[in-house]
Simulated scan of single mutants.
Amino acid sequence: MRPLGRAYQTASLGFLLYKLGTLAVNALAFPVLKASSPLPAAPTVSILVPARDEAGNLPHTLPRLLSQGASEVLVLDDASTDDTARIAAELCAGVPGARLLSGQPRPPGWHGKPWACMQLGQAATGEVLIFTDADVCWQPGTLNALLRRLEHSGADLLTVWPRQETRTWGERLLAPLVDDVLLSILPAPIIRLPFASMSAGNGQLMAFRRASYHKLGGHALVKGEVLEDVSFAAGLKARGGRVALCLGGDLMSVRMYRDYRGAVSGFAKSLHAVHGGSRAVMAGSWLWHFAVYTLPWLRGRWLLTGLGLLERLLVNLKTGRTRPADLLEVLLTPVTPLAALPVYLLGWRRTYRWKGRAYSRKDRP
């Protein structure tokens, strides 16, 4: 074997073994939300839902939120162009503490979601503020489990990754990558360290202690950020706060996208920011993943191919995605970099649109 080929194989093997080692640690150390009894002296809770064009999701998810027993449930209609406002108002009608808010025009310098969340945070009265996306599905008892976990962790922010629900093969090509990035890059004990650079956050579910949230200025801290969730967690850590992470387990799930095209558009929105605002890093990232996961399969290097499959399998086992179709998607691992190429190409553009709004990307030095 030539020196270049030997170096490539050694680097690929080392990368995969590192990720498998990290997965082994996280299999034991990464918390999973569990059903639990209510706290003896539970705090008041505000469940806060930013909603823009969510008419397809709210009939399925909002009734579950309303049945959790929170002090209040606030839904903010963020200038939707569909029936979001009507559906939310009808579902909230007659439920104590539940109401619909009309979003105000977005100020200059703000991205859509941080501004919607900022308005919700200002209107909320609970001691615990739980921001949850409109497509996240809560099971009965989820609120008790969240409060128990927040209390146990002693954190200022608890952020949760719901279980990925995928129904089409187009979704299965990309959506599970969220879990792989979370569980195979950094061991949970390292993420818990009080270093802002070792931060993770998921805007699908972020539960704050009210005092900590307002001490930071609310979502004004991340008003212009695409990755507002990760930035919020890092900003909180940088100011001495504590962040706790958790998987949703059987209590919380999300179907992020309905097909491959939707997944491409959704992931492309944040890909540039995920890579530190550098197009060079983006290009290197795609080439590296192609070299590690696809090239060995094309060239019949079965050790590397098998390790890549094992990585994906371990992620599925940890997140509880163990239905037959979920396990079969492990076989998609070698073609995932090819399926992700349109995401990178779309993420390369300097402008993009998300939910009808135009944004621009700025490269960082």
Rank of each mutant, 00 (worst) to 15 (best):
P107V: 04
A233N: 12
L313V: 08
R2H: 01
C92P: 14
A263N: 12
G170H: 13
G235Q: 15
T22V: 15
L183N: 08
N316A: 08
T132D: 03
N144M: 13
G217Q: 07
D82L: 01
E90Q: 15
L39T: 07
L58G: 08
T159R: 09
Y213V: 04
L65D: 07
R242G: 01
M206I: 02
A124Y: 07
A145T: 11
N26T: 06
N26P: 10
A196L: 04
A211R: 15
P176V: 10
S12W: 00
T81M: 00
V274K: 05
R149E: 15
L309R: 06
L309D: 09
A233F: 10
Q9C: 02
G21Y: 14
P96M: 05
A280M: 08
V274L: 10
L251A: 08
G306I: 03
H111D: 02
D259H: 14
T351W: 02
Q164G: 04
R364G: 00
R52P: 01
L66Y: 07
D77W: 08
A42P: 14
S253L: 01
A51P: 10
E72M: 02
R323Q: 13
L317Y: 01
L66R: 11
P189Y: 14
L91M: 14
I87N: 05
P59S: 03
R106Q: 11
A7M: 09
R299T: 06
R239A: 01
A273W: 05
G109A: 02
L314I: 08
R106N: 03
G14N: 00
L307T: 01
M1I: 01
H152A: 15
R255D: 09
L304H: 06
G306M: 06
L143N: 12
P43Q: 08
L313W: 15
L303D: 00
V254T: 03
A233M: 12
L4T: 02
M118D: 15
L28M: 09
L120V: 08
T166K: 10
Y359S: 04
G284E: 02
G248Y: 02
L341W: 13
G21I: 04
P162M: 03
R361V: 02
A238W: 03
D78Q: 14
V330M: 10
F232A: 02
P96K: 04
P176T: 13
L173V: 13
P365I: 02
S199D: 06
A280F: 11
P187A: 10
F290H: 01
S67M: 04
L76W: 12
V45Y: 13
L221I: 02
H60F: 05
F195T: 00
A244I: 06
R261V: 04
A88K: 13
E165G: 11
L221C: 10
G241R: 03
S212V: 05
V128I: 09
